[in-house]
Design a protein around this nucleic acid. Structure first.
Lengths: 226, 226
DNA sequence: CAAACAAACTTTGTCGACAATATAGTGAGC
DNA sequence: GCTCACTATATTGTCGACAAAGTTTGTTTG
């Protein structure tokens, strides 16, 4: 991955493993995270499990209560909407700042990335939604050069968004249209038009929200039938 | 305090103590936080200190590096600007959502709070900037009813803002004008005019940023002279 | 039979000790 | 005199055990 986080300590490794397991649904939403159980399962002491759980909590992937324990967050339509509302504001802002602060080199790199994605999409690889889209957003977030913004989005919301997507099985009819949106955003950034970049990004995320919301709705309808 | 956080565990207590010490400058920015030292100082084990430090890290009040340790964040003009940029976006959004989601009762409560503040300001109590302003923002953030937004602002940015204010010795010539701004914001919310509420809030924070930035600048000028 | 109390059990919170890593200091070699 | 390597020291990371709080189960009582 491009912006690699590398595990130096044992807690890091356990944290990454747990995060992956949660995001990818291996550990279901709402599951209680037992410290002793996890410590035997991952072959580490409870201390590192506790540390990992703490970090999962700061990602908003689990909720902890004193003397009771931690549970994986449960997803809900309301939660999704709240999440995307915040994302819209923050990533819109990121796009605006990126138009101001990204270097020409970074922008042309971003363009190159987009072209790569385009080829892969044409090859019919569903790769796009998985890593590509995320890389794109990653780069713009980083391009904002605002540390608070970066921390909030990357450490905070980002993995939660992934979790929703994975859990709802987003493969994506939106792939091609999303691609065009990405291209427009890059153009706006290249033109140093922050206002437009923000607006396009907000709209992009709004569409994305509508799309995923629709999926969520049809899923719940199926559930009602059964 | 209104939205009281209460310490149930020993880590909670230590966390609150440390946070207070950092925000109020008792522990200077940039200071290394030695686990052993703190554990003897506060009379608790290193485990609870570690937990407390972890939580300080999620508040962005300290920065931790693996195998090296934690330091209190250092303040800088650039950091301040980044912080207020994010605040502007998020609290602006909070105001817009508050106009939509706050109940009539909550709004009249907020008005009452504002009147209280007004009386205290007239009495010449500098109380305002300290708790009052914060309570006001607190309530609007809570009024947004967006859990992600609330978590980010209250657990994340909020105490950092306080830290900047305290460190810069903000007593506030802006008190009275800020008060008017607050009143206008409440009016917009009461009228259920989200757009206006957002705009007024953004502007309020922008002014606040300019004010504090100016202070920061004159401080650094004094430092250059000496 | 339901509700409330009590005891056993499970789980989290806290502790002190040991292991691994970084830092500082010292000496040898060039 | 400077640099590099090695040692010594201090600090963080990890561990298993104990304490405290919560949960469950079983019993007793109205």
């Amino acid at each position: 991955m491009l912006f690699a986080e590398q595990a130096v300590t044992s807690s890091d490794k356990t944290f990454f493993q747990l995060r992956k397991a949660i995001v990818e649904g291996e550990i279901a939403p709402g599951t209680k995270l037992s410290e002793t159980e996890l410590s035997t399962k991952y072959g580490v002491s409870r201390a590192v499990i506790r540390e990992a759980i703490n970090r999962l909590e700061t990602c908003h992937l689990v909720e902890r209560k004193a003397n009771i324990g931690a549970r994986v967050v449960s997803l809900s339509p309301a939660g999704l909407i709240e999440l995307y509302q915040v994302r819209e504001a923050l990533e819109g802002m990121a796009a605006r700042l990126a138009a101001k602060h990204m270097s020409d080199a970074e922008i042309s790199d971003l363009r190159a990335l987009l072209n790569q994605h385009f080829e892969k999409v044409q090859d019919g690889q569903s790769y796009y939604q998985e890593a590509g889209d995320l890389d794109f957003h990653y780069r713009i977030i980083q391009g904002s050069k605002n540390q608070h913004l970066i921390a909030m989005l990357i450490n905070g919301l980002y993995h939660l968004v992934r979790m929703y997507r994975v859990q709802l099985g987003m493969a994506g009819p939106r792939v091609t249209t999303a691609f065009d949106e990405h291209r427009q955003i890059v153009n706006a950034i290249a033109n140093r038009d922050g206002e437009l970049a923000e607006m396009l990004m907000r709209r992009h995320i709004l569409y994305s929200k509508n799309n995923i919301e629709h999926k969520l709705l049809s899923l719940s309808k199926e559930r009602d039938k059964a």
